[in-house]
Design a protein around this nucleic acid. Structure first.
Lengths: 345, 345
DNA sequence: TTGTATGCGTTATCAC
DNA sequence: GTGATAACGCATACAA
């Protein structure tokens, strides 16, 4: 900018005023400045500007895994929204690791992001403190943090799973395997209560041996399904609490020489684009990813636009059961053989 | 930092020296500083630091679509690599729009990113200029830019498609529908030449009516497949140049009451995690996404670590044909009826 | 070992 | 309408 000012034979203050339209500057000087800018190829330094203004027009976004289609979609929508609003977004993936998360949030805060969107990981103790001390607005998405009362948008996980399990029960299933992630994140807890209530509602006893917990990855789903399907009295249906794990579960079904839906019905959380073009066409619980992303962005944008003091808002969206053909009435099942050995990949 | 200095009754210079380990500072003062930092909850302001140092330890990453599994994976790997190296990454999605891309790159450069990774979009004219004027290292991934000789990592697209089409030809297919994106990006051009050469090599005449071009989205694949399969002498196999378009193509096949591989063989570019658990299990060309991401990151990191003058490097990786069960010998096909009308979604 | 002074590129406040 | 100048928070050269 100094160079521009010199080339245009004006002061830096005038250049700044011209660029930002702060004050009206004469035709004369405007022309000289404009020309100097072009000749020099001057670009305003956003870092210096940020330092002075105290705002970076950048937000931080941290999610567990970007390869999980649910987060891919949410990130995509959020990214677009902030792009439109003239904000840049710094993306971090915690890989379900608590230490990564702490580190990344610190990094983001150091860089003076104007706001934070967090799909958290692990237990909430440290995060609670971080969120409360951060002097920037933060909105939580998908996963809440105990005791933290910030803006957030979540799904009605309980209801969604209740519906899904009820659907399975109506098809006559009584032994429904349940593959979940650890209960230290709210969605997993809430989904589990949906399972419980659906069983209770149908008068079906809860069987702890039908519940397997993993770390949300494909491999965990594989292991869990292997164990479930190797049970003496194996389940006739399996529910998976997320997409990566259901892929693992399907592989387990395949490797055991079983098939879906002939031998076992499958239903899972999170929809994906090709769910209805490949077979079995999975019955899923679709989250309104577009709305989730947009609402999340809009909550943060609202704070960024100055609405700092409004009481925190909690948006709860509804999931939708996408019935396809991966579930069958239990009487239609191929007779249920006991799986003897499960030696495979 | 000023507050810390005051609380510890030292100068800001000493605090800075202590934090960065620039000079050794006495036990005495170290203790006071340490305590002051904790009490105040001081965090170093990376923006001010960046302004002074001229480096942000942030890189910019721009891709067409994060929801395309190929880019999802590449972004994920790159993100991890820079995370490990202590860099933040700003993510932009151009949505295959040239204006977005220009704007976003400008935005990134204004923010003084230390480097740029670009999977470009549209024609290369403006981008060429941008890349050449940017005084930060840039590495191109997946798509090259005509006349720009920067670091880049690409796939041997020609070879990969040559193999895939040859595979189809060996199965007896002679009419192979080809769904592509516009030829203003290098991969689409190179893939097309692979198609050409494979046909030539097998002595099969090239038929322009079997080639349909779209904008890389699912809807384009749908339209293209609809047209191809409505041809009087319809193709017995279809190749799709990316993943979103093959999803559309599969939907078209379904909507026409056809099925794969019984009526039409399908093969596509880019692999995805559940390719081998759902049916038909798609035969795909798998890009080494892990390697692509790592090499890309490592090229940029190398520049960032000071190796600025080395001649530009062009890394070419190989694709791998993942043969599954979406392709059949042509004599095994169900008799080929002429599709009369194609009125659907 | 520690402190003083200066500058990184902006914007804002004030004189003129 | 225009131009000095201070300040944003930090790092560094140099003095002490």
């Amino acid at each position: 900018m100094l160079h521009v000012a010199e080339a245009a034979r004006v002061s830096v203050a005038t250049v700044s005023a011209y660029i930002n339209g702060t004050t009206t500057v004469s035709q004369e000087l405007s022309g000289r400045i404009e020309q100097a800018i072009r000749e020099i190829g001057y670009k305003r330094n956003a870092i210096a500007r940020s330092l002075k203004l105290g705002t970076t027009r950048t937000i931080g976004l941290t999610v567990p895994h970007i390869t999980n289609p649910f987060f891919t979609d949410v990130v995509s929508v959020i990214q677009q929204a902030f792009d439109r609003a003239g904000y840049a977004v710094m993306l971090c993936c915690t890989d379900e690791d608590l230490n990564n998360q702490d580190e990344q949030i610190r990094l983001l805060l150091d860089r003076m992001v104007d706001g934070l969107i967090i799909a958290r990981v692990g237990d909430g103790a440290y995060l609670k403190e971080t969120v409360e001390r951060a002097n920037v607005p933060v909105v939580l998405v998908d996963r809440e943090v105990d005791g933290v009362d910030s803006d957030r948008v979540v799904l009605d996980n309980h209801q969604a799973v209740f519906e899904a399990i009820t659907y399975l029960l109506e098809l006559g299933h009584r032994r429904i395997g349940y593959i979940t992630g650890a209960f230290n994140i709210t969605p997993m807890r809430d989904r589990m209560t949906g399972y419980h209530e659906a069983l209770l509602n149908a008068g079906v006893a809860f069987d702890q041996s039908l519940v397997r917990s993993g770390d949300l990855h494909e491999a965990d789903g594989y292991t869990a399904a292997m164990q479930l399907l190797s049970l003496h009295d194996r389940p006739t249906a399996i529910f998976s609490a997320n997409n990566p794990m259901v892929v693992g579960a399907m592989k387990a079904i395949r490797d055991l020489g079983l098939s879906c839906p002939e031998d076992v019905s499958v239903i899972c959380f999170d929809d994906f684009p090709w769910a209805d073009v490949f077979n079995p066409q999975l019955t899923t619980i679709a989250q309104p990813v577009q709305a989730i992303g947009e609402q999340t962005a809009s909550l943060l944008l609202d704070r960024l636009n100055g609405n700092r003091e409004a009481p925190s808002r909690r948006l709860v969206l509804k999931g939708r059961l996408m019935v396809r053909n991966s579930c069958r009435p239990v009487q239609a099942l191929t007779s249920v053989p006991t799986v003897v050995a499960a030696s495979s990949t």
